[in-house]
Computed example of a mutant assay.
Amino acid sequence: MSSSRIDALTQWAAEQHGLNQADITLEPAGGDASFRRYFRLTLPGGSTQVVMDAPPAQEDSTPFVAIGRRWYAAGLPVPQVHAANLEDGFLLLDDLGNTPMQEHFTDESTVLGYVESALALIAELQNRASPEPLPGYDAPLLTRELDLFPEWCLGEWLGLPAPECWGALREALAQSALKQPIVSVHRDFDAMNLMVDQARLYMIDFQDAVAGPISYDVISLLCGRYWRFTPAQFARLAGIFHDQARRDGRLSAASSQEDFITQCHAMAAQRSLKVLGIFCRLTLRDHKSGYLARLPHFLDHLEDSLAALPEHAHFAQWVRTTLRPAIVQRLADATP
């Protein structure tokens, strides 16, 4: 970040409180996989807010502001947007602290407790926020996301062709998603995007929210980067969500728990394939570090989901015999 941009950001933040630059301090408060950067603003009395720097050439903050204000007005736990300068890409937000949910993942019992609370938050989001203003998570978007896998993971990083069964899997996963009820989808409902503040969970990084499948955020949570649930745990947690969704009408009374869990596994396969592609793209195109080391974890998620989808046994076999050895070897070759 250039010194002129940090000066402009500091000046803007001070002006929002009628102060001079010398009256406030800005300290880095973390970043993410995008071009956004965050700073903690400390005011003269000691209170704090977060300033988001999102360069407009790389990041359009308009959706974040619009979604954030709608969801805040709906009573959802998201940071309040106190001020927005969309022309320069500066936002002033609530400070939700430094503790994302995964920092509480110390043992299985604690993890399960937080995850059940997060499942309840997904239900709250789906019940309170209308999906109508959001872009649709339609067939073109679903297939574009799936195509990140053969393009970036297989082609650009591994130099492997997709197997013959790829087309059938691609079509089946997209169709499974499209058959589900449409709700508001955060789209990256991972532990890293759930902040714990005064024992309450808050959602952040919701700028890519869409109107999409009811199971998607469930899968973002259960197949995230910080924990791998056993098949029995996965089924129990997805079942908890299913039963609540039937009680409050988000799923029809005809929706069986077994069918919903199968849909969850198909959604998990879609997201794992997408993530494998995105992590390779972040590395190769955007020169971000640390993402390749996470590939084996999402490969585990992919194999877990495929094990529950016997109709895709040929692809699952290819993953075991071709993809996994290629990833393991490529990572080993890259290790100094």
Rank of each mutant, 00 (worst) to 15 (best):
Asp147Tyr: 00
Gln329Leu: 12
Asp94Phe: 06
Ala313Cys: 12
Gly136Ala: 15
Glu108Thr: 14
Gly239Phe: 10
His287Thr: 07
Gly75Trp: 08
His82Lys: 12
Ile278Val: 14
Glu311Asn: 10
Asp95Met: 06
Val65Asp: 01
Ala14Asp: 02
His301Thr: 01
Leu282Asn: 06
Gln126Ala: 08
Trp166Ile: 06
Trp166Pro: 04
Ala22Trp: 00
Leu251Ser: 05
Ser3Ile: 00
Ala13Asn: 01
Asp188Pro: 03
Ala8Asn: 05
Gly277Thr: 03
Gln207Met: 06
Ala209Asp: 01
Asp286Trp: 00
Cys264Tyr: 05
Thr143Asp: 00
Ala14Val: 04
Glu145Thr: 00
Leu96His: 02
Phe149Pro: 01
Ala313Ile: 14
Thr25Gly: 15
Leu141Tyr: 14
Trp227Val: 15
Arg128Lys: 14
Arg170Thr: 00
Pro161Asp: 15
Gln49Thr: 02
His242Pro: 04
Leu194Thr: 06
Leu141Cys: 11
Gly159Ile: 13
Leu134Arg: 10
Ser2Gln: 13
Arg281Cys: 12
Cys280Thr: 03
Gly113His: 11
Tyr38Phe: 15
Leu43Thr: 02
Leu86Pro: 06
Ile67Arg: 09
Asp53Trp: 02
Ser117Phe: 05
Ser130Gly: 08
Val65Ala: 12
His312Cys: 10
Ala162Gly: 07
Arg187Gly: 10
Pro56Arg: 03
Val111His: 06
Met192Tyr: 13
His297Asn: 13
Tyr114Ser: 07
Phe241Gln: 07
Asp208Lys: 05
Ala83Gly: 06
Pro163Cys: 10
Ala232Ile: 10
Thr335Phe: 07
His17Pro: 09
Pro55His: 02
Leu309Gly: 10
Leu146Asp: 00
Ala313Gln: 13
Ala29Pro: 06
Arg187Cys: 09
Ala57Val: 12
Ser256Gln: 07
Thr106Tyr: 03
Arg37Leu: 09
Ala22Gln: 13
Phe229Ala: 09
Asp147Lys: 00
Arg69Gly: 12
Leu93Gly: 08
Met195Asp: 04
Ala172Arg: 13
Gly97Pro: 03
Ser289Leu: 15
Phe298Lys: 02
Ala266Asp: 02
Gly159Asp: 05
Leu92Pro: 04
Gly277Phe: 03
Thr110His: 09
Leu201Trp: 07
Ile261Phe: 08
Arg37Ser: 14
Ser117Arg: 14
Leu125Met: 13
Ser256Ala: 09
Ser220His: 04
Ile219Glu: 00
Gly167Thr: 11
Val275Cys: 11
Ser117Glu: 12
Trp166Leu: 09
Leu43Gln: 03
Asp217Glu: 01
Ala269Trp: 00
Ile240Trp: 12
Trp71Lys: 11
Asp60Tyr: 07
Leu148Ile: 01
Arg271His: 00
Glu156Lys: 10
Phe39Val: 08
Arg320Pro: 01
Trp227Cys: 10
Val51Cys: 08
Trp152Ala: 00
